[in-house]
C-alpha cells in the first residue's frame, strides 16, 4: 500500500508563503482560491508575534488538505465526487461530478481547506500558469489540494515540496507506508504531530519540530542523517 503525505517542519518554516504561491501557480488557481495557506501562531494578524514583550513567540504552520486516512469529507459526499484514491491515498475531487452541495466543506474539520468557486473562475494573469496538466477550474464546485495529482502522475513531487521551492527546507513529501522514505525517517527521528487528532480523521500531514536536533548535532547534520539513512527507521532511532 501507498500512503502519500507530507512532513512539515514548523521549526524550519519561516512563513515566507513561497509554498502557498507555488501551489497557486502550479495549479493555476483562480483569484481568491488558495489550497495551501500559511497561518501565524501568535498575534492577531499575519506575521505578528504572540505574548507580551519581551516574552514573545512566533511560529508558522501551513494548512491544506490533510489527505486523511479516515476522511470525513468522502463519507458525506452524496455523489462520491470526493473520494480517497486507493492506489496512493490521495483524497481526490472530481469537479465534473461535484454538484456543489458543500456537504464536504461542512464535514471537514480542518477549517477552510476546502474551497468553493463562488463565481466563474477569474485570473489575475491572462495566461495559464504552472507546469501543465493543472485541473480546469469550474464555477460552483468544491476544490482543494490534490497533492498535485497531475505531477504525481508524472512521477514528480507536489509543487510545494520541490527542493527548489521552500527556502527553509521545511517541507517533505513521500510515502508513510515505506519505512525508508524521507517522511517516514523524519517521523521516526522527530515524532510528529497531526492537526486535530481528536477528530478521528488520521491525517497524513505531519508537523514536526526539529528544534532538538541542534542540541548535539548541527541541524544540517541531523537532516543529512535523517535523509540519507536507507537502513530503516531503527538506525535513525539508534543514533539519537
Amino acid at each position: 500500500m501507498t500512503r502519500l503525505g507530507m512532513v512539515i517542519d514548523t521549526f524550519r518554516c519561516i512563513g515566507c508563503h513561497t509554498c502557498a504561491m507555488a501551489c497557486k501557480l502550479e495549479n493555476n488557481l483562480p483569484n481568491n482560491n488558495w489550497w495551501n495557506r500559511v497561518l501565524t501562531v501568535g498575534g492577531e494578524d499575519m506575521d505578528t508575534p504572540g505574548g507580551i514583550y519581551p516574552n514573545l513567540s512566533k511560529k508558522y504552520f501551513t494548512l491544506g488538505c490533510q489527505h486523511c486516512t479516515n476522511p470525513a469529507c468522502t463519507r458525506v459526499c452524496p455523489v462520491g465526487a470526493t473520494y480517497k484514491r486507493e492506489e496512493d491515498g490521495v483524497v481526490f475531487q472530481d469537479y465534473d461530478k461535484c454538484i456543489g452541495c458543500r456537504m464536504c466543506m461542512a464535514a471537514c474539520p480542518y477549517t477552510g481547506v476546502r474551497n468553493f468557486n463562488w463565481e466563474e473562475p477569474q485570473y489575475y494573469v491572462g495566461i495559464q500558469t504552472g507546469s501543465g496538466g493543472a485541473p480546469t477550474h469550474k464555477k460552483h464546485t468544491v476544490e482543494k489540494c490534490t497533492l498535485c495529482a497531475h505531477r504525481l502522475a508524472r512521477g514528480e513531487e507536489p509543487a510545494c515540496c520541490q527542493d527548489s521551492i521552500c527556502p527553509g527546507r521545511a517541507r517533505y513529501f513521500g510515502d508513510f507506508d515505506d519505512p525508508s522514505s524521507k517522511v517516514s525517517q523524519l517521523l521516526a527521528r522527530y515524532g510528529g504531530e497531526q492537526l486535530l487528532s481528536d477528530m478521528q480523521t488520521e491525517p497524513n500531514i505531519y508537523y514536526i519540530d526539529s528544534r532538538g536536533a541542534g542540541k548535539d548535532l548541527s541541524i544540517a547534520n541531523a537532516y543529512k542523517e535523517a535523509l540519507n539513512k536507507t537502513a530503516g527507521s531503527e538506525a535513525v532511532v539508534a543514533s539519537h
Binding site: R37, V38, L39, T40, M46, T111, G112
Partner: peptide
C-alpha cells in the same frame, strides 16, 4: 472554527 488564527488570512 476548529483551527483558529484566521485573522492571519
Amino acid at each position: 472554527p476548529n483551527i483558529d488564527y484566521w485573522s492571519t488570512t
